[in-house]
Amino acid sequence: MVSVPDARSFGRGKLAAWFQRSEAARGYALMSPALIVLLIGIAVPLIILIAMSLWTRDGFGFDMTPTIANYQRAATEPIFGTLLTRSFMISGLATFITVLLCYPMAYYVAFHVHRNKMLWIVLMTLPFWTSYLLRVFAWRVILGYEGVINSAFLSAGWIEAPLEFLLYSQTAVVITLAHAWAAFAILPLYVSLEKIDKSLLEAATDLGDGPFTRFMRITLPLSMPGVIAASFLIFIPTTGDYITPALLGGPDGVMIGNLIQLQFGPVNNWPMGAALSIVLMAWIAALALVFLFITRKAKDHLA
């Protein structure tokens, strides 16, 4: 386990090359248990999912002749397109709101908190680790027909009848998603802001920039990697969410994740569900690439 001194390997190309190889081999050997689990748990299931998306349902079994019928259905039947678009709209809106609201918070902790910084970071990220189901459930308690808001407003005499639009709407889904994922957005934003060299800000001030110009020209561009990372970290997982729409969405708030879950549950058309999962992933990948491309172009344009 002792590393070879550089001098020895110098001039012994073959030995050095062998050692290099064996170092990699030792690394892989050490990692192999984790790698095997990841392969069985991630790669293999995804490959089988792709295979299954090309099958069709046949009674209680599957017809394994490869066909793209499921994809044709996904492309032609309006319900799939509608739900996909809606999922992206809801997630996009939730992502935008979350990043917008979390940015000042991350900024505050990065630039204005000097004592007990750790406590602030722990406090901000703590809710993320608690049960997602329960955080969504909490919003149902709040937004419900006889929930916290309605009953409080009623007993205060501000409203005559319960506000029906609170629960079972797209608004409810957006609010809940934005709240539930806030803790996830904070960290990348905070890290990118914390990294900014404070002397750049001083230089900008010395050269006559006011707080607003300084923010627009230094802080915001330099924190863009964090903004992009946070956007991805929220947008991608939320597009496939089915808990929030199921508990708070109602008929108008159904998303693509619910449809996928239905195919594997009551509808019992697994190949269709597999095809929808693949379509969702393909769209996410495509949107992510477009988003990256646009931000890169914008960056080049600014620079």
Binding site: G27, L35, I42, L233, G273, S277, M281
Partner: peptide, 27 residues
């Protein structure tokens, strides 16, 4: 250890953090 493809492995291992849970569930 220095291993070729190291960052690819780490990215691969982090996939479950990003990919919607429903997809891994059904897969």
């Amino acid at each position: 250890y220095r291993m070729p493809g190291q960052s690819a492995i780490v990215t691969f291992a982090m996939l479950p953090l990003i990919v919607p849970g429903v997809i891994f569930g059904v897969a």
